[in-house]
Simulated assay, not measured.
Amino acid sequence: MLVNYLRLLLLPFSLIYGLAITLRKKLYDWGIMRSVKFDLPIICVGNLAVGGSGKTPTTEYLVRLLGDYKIAILSRGYGRKTKGFILADATATAETIGDEPLQYHQKFEDVTVAVCEDRVAGIEKLKENHDLIILDDAFQHRAVNAGLNILLFEFRKLGTLQFLLPAGNLRDIFASRKRADILLVTKSPVPLLHVAQQASVNELQPNNNQPVLHSYLKYGDLQHLYNNECRTLDSINDFEIFLLTGIANPAPLIEELEKYSKAVKHEEFADHYAFKEEDIKKFKSAFDKGVKKDKIIITTEKDSKRLKAAGFKDLLVNLPVYFLPIEVELFEEDKITFDELILNYVKSNRRNR
């Protein structure tokens, strides 16, 4: 909490940052800076804040929805130690392509996954052999004129006072939402009351052609980090849970786990954090000192990619360490609207090949 108050001292820098991105936005709007349009469907999944809005499970939802097409996912590859265009293959690790692209690559064998800081250059390399390209986290990358922009907003943060970087977590001005084709509110409560739905619409003030749709998180079964063992969340009732995360917003995950146990001990790191051996040793020591007989280590699917890549197997292999997969689902009427918008866009913009 103290850190949040100290960040308010940075408000003058947020003002300068806001002026800079507003000017950049105008340069693109006026055509002074060039935005490239491509002759195949390009779907951009993005948000205005730094991390935590659910872009990864939303991208995975799109992949499942569009399974009849040859898809490429193009990401910047945040947190990787490489540069330039890289195509994911059997040798890919979180260090070479980033944790989220690695998750896509390992989950969808028929989907091409690539990383490149320059999205235009990346699309040029992918466009000939694919029916469509999904841009992961590229709403601010105005050099590409995406055909369909899906902009994500986390439900619990709507209606709260948010500041631009560095005083806050917004990397773009709120007015930029007007560029989006679909406004998707994520991590909504279940059930979602009509008054809460309407509150989202009132906050976002969409254009007449901008649908405001709502999604929620659906949790899967726990999966062991090193083998094929799975177990349900019901099976860990009253366990002592040692939670290890390096994601932007672990609050929804903690809320889910607290449905099964009140003994959740959370070791929190920054988003995309590169775990170190001393971190894991300290965490393992805390687990060993756990007071309950029934205890378990849980991490996120994204974090599991970095844990496996970093060579911690000797420290963790004999422990009950699992990751919890999540999926995005939309409420019934919103799902019909969303799916129809996506499928119609791809069908009507697909090249004759």
Rank of each mutant, 00 (worst) to 15 (best):
E329V: 09
T93S: 15
D238C: 03
R34F: 03
E128C: 12
H141R: 15
L87N: 11
G31C: 05
E124A: 06
V346H: 05
Q140R: 03
A72V: 00
K259W: 00
H105Q: 14
A196W: 09
G159F: 01
C230A: 08
S261E: 01
N129K: 11
I182F: 03
A90R: 15
Y260F: 13
L217A: 12
K305N: 09
A138Y: 06
E268I: 15
E277Q: 14
G77D: 10
C44V: 00
S215W: 00
D314N: 14
P252N: 10
L165A: 13
G168C: 02
L253R: 08
P189F: 03
Q223P: 02
R34V: 10
D137F: 02
L66N: 09
P211T: 08
T58R: 03
P250G: 06
K187F: 06
L152E: 06
S176L: 03
L65Y: 05
R142L: 07
L307T: 04
F108L: 04
V190D: 09
L135G: 11
R80T: 11
L170D: 07
K347G: 04
G31M: 00
S285P: 00
S14K: 15
I236V: 15
S75I: 01
K125M: 09
Q197Y: 01
Y226W: 07
D99M: 01
S35Q: 11
E333I: 04
A167H: 09
D238V: 05
F155I: 04
L319S: 14
L183R: 14
A146G: 09
L48W: 01
L15Y: 07
D234F: 02
Q140V: 03
E255W: 00
A251H: 00
I123E: 03
F163C: 10
Y61N: 10
A309G: 15
E60G: 08
E60Y: 06
Q106R: 12
K302T: 13
H194P: 08
R353I: 10
D221F: 00
G246V: 09
L40S: 14
V120N: 06
G31N: 04
E229D: 10
D288L: 15
G220Q: 11
A310T: 10
E128S: 15
I297R: 04
E332P: 02
I326V: 15
N352M: 03
T337F: 07
I247N: 04
F275M: 12
G84K: 08
Q210M: 01
K157A: 02
E301A: 12
L87M: 12
L233F: 00
L217D: 00
F153D: 09
A286L: 14
F139G: 02
K293E: 14
R142W: 01
P57W: 08
E267G: 04
S304G: 04
A138D: 10
S75K: 02
V144N: 13
V201R: 13
I71G: 12
V45K: 05
I236E: 01
G147W: 01
P250M: 03
K218W: 00
G98P: 02
K289R: 12
N344Q: 15
E340M: 07
Y226E: 03
D68M: 05
